[in-house]
Design a binder for these strands. Structure first.
Lengths: 244, 244
DNA sequence: GCACCAGTGTTGTATATACAAGTTGGTATA
DNA sequence: TATACCAACTTGTATATACAACACTGGTGC
């Protein structure tokens, strides 16, 4: 086996292609021990550093697993994760060119109960901020935003005018997101929620649980409830090769 | 400025931390030209290859943009849209280490009606493949997979044994995804669906509409229905730390 | 005034070398 | 037999060097 040194594609990429080729061809099934860097260096006639870079990148891309001292192994089939873009609701409505309004039910200080405390990294009984807001598009409710905020990360939360700057945007600038976690599920609204969202009985909701961190510190924990007949969460992903 | 060579964290990581620190601190606003590799080599007292690795990884992570011959620049802030990983159901169950079974209701040839034809880029009346499968985890249904397949892109679809290789995995290898579109919504199941998923009355479902393309050609159009009380779609996105 | 070109600086790749850090398996020893 | 130890091998990091590829600048010649 030999690669073509003076090609368009760099050598490390050719090494990557070679290895991925062996994997998808079935030559190296899951958990197989891949030849060591030194072996590949001899087989492919490239330097160890080049092989090393290829293996490191394939590891980051989920093709391989490496154990220092032990070897390199074909990773179990990728958790076929596709990608879905979760847009901020207000932004999305603006993007659609529709009218958007914000109805603030309350923005206040509360004592943390066990669950909120856990999610925001606080102690039970510590104060936190809690806001409840209805977002409307063309007059109809599209989101009930129930949000808890860590006062240490956004101390001015209570003073904001959320009809001007949405909580999401304010928090983005107050404590830039370094990490975010989403959970999407289908639920039935409570009677109060149903009333606030002006829904008919028996209709389901799309619930988005959203938690964000800034510099490893929890910032906010939000429950975003959408009427099932009025809101869809969509995303499109283009591209073959893995991306960052 | 000097780094600590014999620390826990590798030097290239320290270089990355230094640069990200300057960016989030506002020292280097968007579009700023970052010091060149040679300058950073002198400033931080590490080799150029170490600086290079740090800059390359930060570029892959979206912090920087590099132009060969011109320099390195701070990338504009990432678009508002967060990211959600949509995993393949069977893979996810395996990842959770649970038992997974596949119940095939039918896999057959059909004539395309208007809607399917449109999504698969066919003419009305052309033949297509249609499968209906229930995925179970620990004995309980977790997904009803209603899938239409373009026979031009996966001609052997009918001959597959989907208890061995799930439709998703088969299609992945038959026609690697170049593009994918998802739509998530909350719906109420029809009585038949409710029965197949063994759900109680009045419970909502999470519906994932999934369409994929391979080399610009539509491959499959699927309707993935999950019981709301048994399935959640989750994803985590890290913006700062390593690991794309 | 304009086109061209060479020089300089930048990023990108490839290699060789060295050592650190971890795993594994075999061997000597108690 | 059981244990301790060590040698060999693996991956991980760091450096120095070299050259290629590309962008920009300034000067030269026309």
């Amino acid at each position: 086996m030999s690669l073509t040194p003076s090609s368009e594609t760099p050598l490390y990429q050719q090494v990557k292609d070679y290895i991925v080729g062996r994997i998808v061809a079935g030559d190296w099934p899951e958990e197989t021990k891949v030849p060591s860097e030194n072996e590949l260096t001899r087989e492919l006639r490239v330097s160890r550093m080049t092989v090393h870079r290829a293996l490191r990148e394939l590891t980051a891309e989920g093709w391989l697993e490496r154990v220092q001292g032990a070897g390199t192994f074909v990773a179990p089939p990728k958790p076929q994760s596709e990608i879905l873009a979760v847009r901020n609701i207000a932004e999305e409505i603006r993007a659609r060119g529709h009218e958007h309004s914000t109805e603030i039910l309350f923005v206040r200080r509360e004592r943390a109960r066990a669950l909120e405390a856990k999610h925001l990294g606080l102690e039970r009984g510590e104060t936190l901020f809690h806001s409840l807001i209805v977002h409307r598009e063309n007059g109809r409710p599209v989101q009930l935003e129930d949000r808890y905020v860590n006062p240490k990360m956004a101390p001015d939360y209570l003073e904001q005018d959320f009809t001007v700057l949405t909580p999401h945007k304010y928090l983005m600038q107050a404590a830039p997101i370094s990490e975010a976690e989403h959970l999407v599920m289908a639920v039935m609204p409570t009677p109060e929620e149903r009333k606030l969202l002006e829904m008919k009985a028996g209709e389901p909701c799309l619930l988005l649980r959203r938690q964000t961190w800034s510099r490893r510190q929890p910032v906010t924990w939000a429950r975003l409830l959408h009427p099932g007949d009025r809101y869809r969460l969509g995303g499109r992903f283009a591209g073959e090769g893995p991306r960052p």
